Each structure stands twice: as C-alpha cells, then as structure tokens.
Amino acid sequence: MMRQVQNNIWEDDDFIYISEEIFKHLPKEYREAAEARKQQSEDALQIADKDIRGLIKLINAIPTTSSLSYIYHRLRTSKFEATPQALMEQEVLTAAFIVTYGRLFANGDGASGLSRGAIPRHLRPVHDEIVELRNKRYAHNGSHDTVSSGINLSFDGNGFRVSMQMSLGFYVGGKNEWKELITFIDAHMHERLTKILRRLKEKTGYEWTFPVGPAPNWVGDYG
C-alpha cells in the first residue's frame, strides 16, 4: 500500500516515489540514471506489448474465477431443507454461479480469453449446459425445460380467481460435474499466467514475477 510521506513524496514497502516537480531538482547524475532506467523499461515494454495485453486480460478474469469457486463452495456447503427460504437460496446461488461462469466466456473489453475449445472434451457437454442455462433461464427471460409457469383460472359464477403455477428445477448443492470444471479453469488460468511470464522473460531478458499467496481456505472445499 502506498503511503504519503510528505508533499509530492510517497513510499511503499519497496520504493520511494517523487513527483516530477521534485525530480527536476535532483542532482544531474541521479536524473540521468533515472532517465536511463525509464528508457530501459519502456524499450522492454514495447517489445512485450502483445503479451502484456494478454496478461491484463488474464488478470481481469482472476476475480471472476475466485467468485465462481466461492459460489460453488456456498452451494455445496449450504444446508438444504424443504422450505421456501432454502429453495430461494439455492436458486439465487445457482443463478450467481451460472451468470458468473458465463462472464468468463463473454466477449468485450472484460473478456478473459477463455474459449470453449480450451475446455477438455469430456467437460464440454457440462459447459454447454451451463451456457444454455445462462442464455435461456438466468440472463434472459427465455424458455428452458428447467422452469415453467402459468396461471390457473377458477370461475365461481361471480368472477374469476387467478392462481399462479410454477415449477423450478435445479441441482441441490450444484451439479457434481461443476467441481471438475472449476478445478480445470483454476489450473488453466495458472498455466496461462506461467506461460505469459515465461514468454515475457524470453522476449525482454528480464525476470517477470507475480505475487502468489496461499489460496483462501474455501478454495477446493466443496463438501
């Protein structure tokens, strides 16, 4: 975390940062060394521009993959009872899982670069089922065979009484195959990160590191 030391000067655990206003008053040899270092880094970044853009795309997807794992953990570990509250909790968590998964495969500025072709062949039917659920049930009010609704009309001679009929289908605790899919995506993202960092080193001649800490205790805890 960056901390302000005084006006125009900041620091973190590794560096001290100064503004351009102060920089121009430094001794000439300091300014020349800093300018040379700046040029050195800019030259390396220009060479690695394409891979850096891929790295940014990958980093943008990491919060989504983390959310996906947490939602599945909640689905697997939540206690289910035949009550309206428990039914709604399962429905809400399932909707969150399906929509979050779909974000990993969406196009646009926030796209992760993950495609159906990267999914192992035996998991593609599971992937396709999730995408269909997203498109036809959770992201849009379309028709899907897991949900149906209608009305029942009763006439008593004086008027009509309208009652709603609805059925919802979902996997209590999420589908078992989702676990293998999530595990693959987590490993795939880590592998892509490793490959990009390795390519960046090969192209620039410099080490590229990414901070890695212990995974949250709920990752992999799917009941």
Score class of each variant (00 low, 15 high):
Asn152Trp: 14
Glu32Phe: 03
Gly150Gln: 01
Phe160Gly: 06
Ala118Lys: 04
Met189Leu: 14
Leu87Met: 12
Leu104Thr: 02
Leu133His: 04
Ile16Phe: 05
Leu181Cys: 08
Lys50Met: 09
Ile18Glu: 06
Ile182His: 03
Tyr138Pro: 07
Ala187Asn: 15
Val212Asn: 09
His25Glu: 12
Arg124Ser: 11
Ser112Cys: 03
Ile9Glu: 10
His140Thr: 01
Asp109Gly: 09
Ala34Trp: 02
Pro125Ser: 03
Pro63Gln: 00
Tyr101Thr: 07
Ala95Leu: 01
Pro216Lys: 01
His25Tyr: 11
Gly205Gln: 03
Met2Gly: 09
Gln90Val: 07
Thr204Met: 10
Gln85Trp: 12
Asp145Gln: 09
Gln165Tyr: 13
Ala139Glu: 02
Ile56Pro: 02
Arg137Thr: 04
Asp49Tyr: 07
Glu32Tyr: 01
Gln40Val: 05
Leu104Gln: 02
Arg37Asp: 07
Thr64His: 01
Glu91Pro: 00
Glu91Gln: 13
Met88Thr: 04
Arg124Leu: 09
Asn158Leu: 14
Asp156Val: 08
Tyr30Gln: 15
Gly150Thr: 00
Glu20Asn: 15
Phe184Gln: 07
Leu200Pro: 05
Leu58Pro: 00
Val92Arg: 04
Asn7Thr: 11
Trp208Ala: 14
Glu32Thr: 09
Ile119Asp: 08
Thr94Asn: 07
Ala61Pro: 03
Lys136Cys: 10
Arg3His: 13
Gly173Asn: 05
Met1Asp: 03
Tyr138Val: 01
Glu202His: 10
Leu197Glu: 05
Arg134Ile: 01
Glu81Leu: 12
Ser78His: 11
Ser143Arg: 11
Pro125Tyr: 09
Phe184Ile: 10
Ser67Tyr: 06
Gln6Ser: 12
Leu58Gly: 02
Val99Tyr: 00
Tyr72Cys: 03
Lys179Val: 11
Arg31Val: 04
Lys201Gly: 12
His73Thr: 00
Lys195Cys: 13
Ile98Cys: 03
Ala86Phe: 05
Lys201Phe: 13
